[in-house]
Write a protein that binds this DNA or RNA. Structure first.
Length: 498
RNA sequence: GCUCCGGUAGUAUAGCCCGGACAAGUAUACGGGCCUUUCGAGCCCGGGACCCGGGUUCAAAUCCCGGCCGGAGCACCA
């Protein structure tokens, strides 16, 4: 709660041409893959600005390629936006408005500003490159109207005819060289089925929709920059007003590809099993790893800008924010990775009651029963020498009698915590639970090389109290790191970060 | 190849439009110290950058030109 407020106060630069109460932004996902952090950051920005100016937000699925879109992805986005606490005011799919697109297309053909082109793909490509017009461009309006009708009547097969806008074949901006605005697709669409086979292309659908939704501001990545002119031109033809564009460069997180293609390749290579792999920048991956939506939000609002330069974020930037949110609320537990047995002579069995958090007392207390036998981490054993004194945190000091890789023998020693005594975590031998911790790391080292240790599995023992931890709770295993409980049945945790 | 756009510490950014108080701010990472019954958090200190070369100017991170490097686009995808 307190944290929410803090983020809201963070300032975003003012939005150009923004009028309070009149701003309308949009979330325009293409439901052809799982939502990832790039969508999240773009969504957060569009949403934050709408909020900042008391405006409205549209969730509009850009689903005009029947071959690419799948039902499950629509839901992935809705879920993802909800997770980020993005609230949208309206929702629609572009595929619902096909008839509307037809009406506008007809209007444009009647205006003499579009034509039906029968050139083969390759020819279009090469003429466009040369800046030359083709013979179909000079067909008269009635001819074009006739062909347009024929397209709908199924008189042409996929690839045989397209509708092109009359732009400027000599334009420096190649998107203006008579772009295709409709094509024939012989493939059923997951939402509207096989009802249509003439489908609008992106620029047409998006510009008309942005017009009818009264979008005032578009915040998007820079690969769309060249399309501003085209999209404005389309709206000008049909008498709609244009939005203000704010574009910024794409980004990546170091060692972590975001593109569907690359992620799929990783899955196909057997390096990962699913799209919610904790090493992936998908929303589900981040969530499983223990990244909080508030951290993604704060990261977006405070650590990024609208630069056009190429960016490669270091994960530590996000982790640090996440840790600051987690630290005051995560319960502490003892966990001993790669455990080694410790016997403490002269220690009477007993029970101690210790806090779940060093300062946040609202998290309560836990009890641990112990005997004279424990597990401790081999990482701590490595540094031990005979006669050293160590402290089992909250419990007792122990003088090491015999430290070996396999078993450590010590004897109870008096006193409490002190300056030069290392304090380590421990687990009672007879009352411990075996747990597995998945430790995700970056997928690629120096750009291209696959990281062989991108997902290590660490086994160890945790104190019995972890049975209270439910799936999704993020705890801190002391001196190990923050971990999210992924499965209570198999006792699997995923390390979030240190 | 063509067109457009960028280049501030390891990383991400502020500053650039409207040149001067910028011997460049912040976050993160790193090093040191303090604190702490965690190697977490917190506190303090430290090193670390204006891509290069010219020009304009009393004055350039900021304006201009050239170079180098990087990114994006050049679909019947979005």
């Amino acid at each position: 709660m307190v944290y929410e407020k803090k983020i809201e106060e963070k300032k975003l630069p003012p939005l150009p041409d923004a009028v309070r109460g009149r701003v309308v932004t949009r979330l325009p996902p293409e439901p052809s893959g799982y939502m990832h952090i790039g969508h999240a950051m773009s969504g957060l920005l569009n949403y934050a600005y709408a909020r900042m100016y008391d405006g409205k937000v549209w969730l509009r699925f850009e689903d005009t390629d029947p071959r690419k879109v799948k039902l499950e992805y629509y839901e992935s986005f809705r879920k993802g936006y909800k997770w980020l606490k993005i609230e949208w005011d309206y929702e629609k799919n572009n595929s619902e408005d096909i008839e509307l697109f037809y009406d506008y297309a007809e209007k444009i053909i009647e205006l003499g500003r579009a034509y039906v082109c029968f050139c083969p793909h390759e020819k279009i490509k090469s003429l466009r490159r040369k800046g030359l017009e083709c013979e179909h461009r000079s067909q008269d309006i009635d001819e074009n109207l006739k062909y347009w009708k024929m397209m709908h009547d199924g008189r042409f097969r996929e690839g045989e005819a397209i509708v092109r806008l009359i732009g400027d074949m000599k334009s420096q901006n190649t998107t203006m060289r008579d772009p295709a605005i409709f094509r024939i697709v012989e493939h059923s669409h997951p939402i509207v089925g096989a009802r249509y086979h003439v489908w609008p292309l992106y620029d047409f659908a998006a510009s008309i929709e942005d017009g009818v939704c009264n979008i005032t501001h578009i915040l998007r990545t820079s690969e769309f920059a060249l399309r501003d002119e085209l999209q404005n031109y389309i709206r000008d033809l049909v008498g709609m007003s244009n939005p203000t564009y704010i574009e910024y460069s794409r980004f990546e997180f170091k060692g972590t590809p975001v593109s569907k293609r690359k992620l799929r390749a990783i899955i196909e290579a057997g390096l990962a099993e699913r799209w919610d792999d904790p090493r992936f920048p998908t929303i589900e991956g981040l969530r499983r790893r223990g990244i909080l939506p508030e951290a993604v939000k704060e990261f977006t609002l405070t650590q990024t800008g609208f630069s056009y330069a190429k960016r490669e974020y270091d994960w530590s930037l996000l982790y640090s924010l996440n840790r600051k949110i987690l630290d005051p609320i995560a319960r502490r537990f003892f966990f001993t990775p790669s455990p080694v047995k410790l016997k403490v002579e002269e220690l009477e069995p007993g029970e101690i009651t210790i806090p779940y958090h060093p300062t946040n007392s609202s998290l309560g207390m836990r009890k641990i029963c112990y005997t004279d036998e424990f597990y401790i981490s081999s990482l701590d054993v490595e540094n031990m020498k005979d006669r050293d004194i160590i402290r089992l945190k909250y419990l007792a000091n122990v003088k090491i009698v015999n430290a070996s890789k396999y078993e450590v023998i010590g004897v109870r020693s008096g006193g409490g915590p002190a300056q030069n005594i290392p304090i380590i975590q421990w687990v009672p031998l007879h009352r411990s639970l075996k747990v597995k911790v998945l430790v995700p790391d970056i997928l690629y080292l120096d750009g291209e090389k696959v990281n062989p240790e991108s997902l290590r599995i660490i086994e160890g023992y945790a104190e019995e109290n972890i049975v209270e931890v439910k799936v999704d709770e993020i705890v801190q295993f002391e001196r190990f790191g923050f971990c999210r409980c992924d499965s209570t049945i198999d006792r699997i945790f995923i390390k979030t970060h240190d």
